[in-house]
Design a protein around this nucleic acid. Structure first.
Length: 255
DNA sequence: ATGGTGGGTGTCCCA
């Protein structure tokens, strides 16, 4: 069983990349972020032709999340208690006996910005939602673009970056609060290395210089931790023509 | 401190 996450930065533009990557990586479940596609225009037929069912929650121009799976995703949730939010950033669904929560965490822009306050409020509400989800679903995976670096190993130049956006103590505490409901950062079950990133800015040849951040995470509950066999970042699609600025991340389970 | 690049939209917003 392989479960993946990829911020595609426009599904319309990246559909050929997604198709190529699905064919090569053969994931069973994929969470997508920044589809930037209204539901009426979601490429259901193209996805079905690849052998995947899809649930999605999109909007015009911004945000948008989707879950693709070999088996039909059911019991989808797009809105959570306490967040009356027009931004389409959350999608939970059940595939088999695994509960999948796909998150496109608020970017936050800069410390002190109103978007930063919104990010922290949003994360607090998501924490409460996850506490309920894990109580109902022992096999829980929470994955997506978290827009937070857990620690300095996840930042290309932690001294220069300091405690700026993505690395501020309140953001890191908010991420830790998600983990504290009973989740594990699956990537860190397999490596303690620094300098392994999932996002690189389009500017300044950042990818070539490995000036990146690890902000795309796959968090798993105890029941899935016990059967996890690998958790990797697949840098290959970031090298393709007209790439997303994010690489896909993928978890393998012995299920 | 700024601006570099990219996507979607529309002559700017967001990342």
């Amino acid at each position: 069983m392989k479960i993946a996450s990829w911020n595609v930065n426009s599904l319309k533009v990246r559909l050929p990349h997604l198709q190529q990557w699905l064919a090569e990586a053969q994931p069973d479940i994929v969470a997508l972020q920044e589809t930037k596609t209204v539901d009426e225009k979601f490429p259901v037929d193209e996805i079905a032709a690849m052998g995947y069912r899809a649930v999605f929650s999109g909007q015009k121009t911004y945000n948008g999340v989707a879950i693709l799976a070999r088996d039909e995703p059911v019991d989808a949730v797009t809105d959570i208690e306490g967040l009356d939010d027009p931004q389409r950033r959350i999608l939970a669904a059940t595939v088999g006996d695994i509960r999948v929560v796909n998150l496109y965490v608020v970017n936050g822009k800069a410390l002190g910005d109103e978007k930063y306050a919104y990010k922290l409020h949003w994360l607090a509400k998501v924490r409460d939602f996850l506490a309920e989800e894990i109580a109902r679903h022992p096999k829980l995976v929470v994955l997506g673009d978290f827009n937070i670096c857990r620690d300095d190993r996840d930042v290309y130049d932690p001294v220069a970056w300091g405690e700026d956006i993505f690395c501020s103590p309140p953001e890191r505490a908010a991420l830790q609060a998600l983990l504290d409901v009973g989740l594990h950062d699956s990537f860190r079950l397999f490596t303690e290395d620094a300098g392994l990133f999932s996002w690189w800015d389009y500017r300044q040849a950042a990818f070539r210089r490995n000036m990146g951040l690890r902000i795309d995470l796959i968090l798993i509950s105890d029941a899935l931790k016990s059967v996890a066999t690998s958790s990797i970042i697949d840098k290959a699609p970031r090298k393709w023509e007209q790439p997303s600025d994010h690489a896909p991340v993928a978890l393998e389970l012995n299920l």
